[in-house]
Amino acid sequence: MERQNFHRELENLRLTLYKMAALTRQSFEKATQAYLDRDDDLAQVVIDGDREVNRIELEIDRQSLRLLALEQPMARDLRMIVGIMRISNDLERIADQSVNIAERTIFLCQHPPLEPVAAMGHLIDISKKMFNMAISSMREMDAKEAKKIPPLDDYADEYNMQVLKSLIEVMAASSPGFEKRVLKMRRSIQTIIISRCLERIADLSTNIGEHVAFIAEGVNIKHQQKL
């Protein structure tokens, strides 16, 4: 009755997810580093690395469907597989957002820097913190840690709004010459897109926290305030 083979395969699936999480973390960290350091080579590394994350996502889908179809998992095992599929989907989207940050960074590197926006630093910090909490709660299957993530999302939203406001002011301020004004607007808009990507990564990290709570406790904590 002991299902050793199945549990070995389930463990392999978990390890594949950890690998995907590690690659996604690298992508995200390099993308923010490239933005902060104005390093277009590093940004290109992020873009080139995305294919591997996509490949692992497909691999996780394949392994998960196989286990669902052939092993008819129950209880925690069932939640684990469903949760892993959801988490891998969110990781893939985080990796995509990192690529998006890297692409905007390459553009920004070609032009002089804008004046610094304080909220951008805060947004990078909070989104990194949320992402790291999501990954560590996932590794430990720690629902308590996972449930600390969603409340942080309000900070990410707030910093994103502050970035937007600051850059609207930058764009509204008059500067001499049409060409210069256009370039300033383009750089501001690219930065606003980066800010939006970071805010999305915070959202997706929140999702991962919710999936971890679902796997560990079987309780759905999604949309709790909204329903």
Binding site: M1, E2, M74, A75, R76, D77, G218, V219
Partner: peptide, 19 residues
């Protein structure tokens, strides 16, 4: 019971961790 059993012993049995 099959998605979220209350007790570890039940969980272990239905997930094939003993029996």
């Amino acid at each position: 019971l099959f998605t979220r059993p209350g007790l570890k012993q039940t969980e272990d049995y239905i997930t094939g961790r003993f029996g």
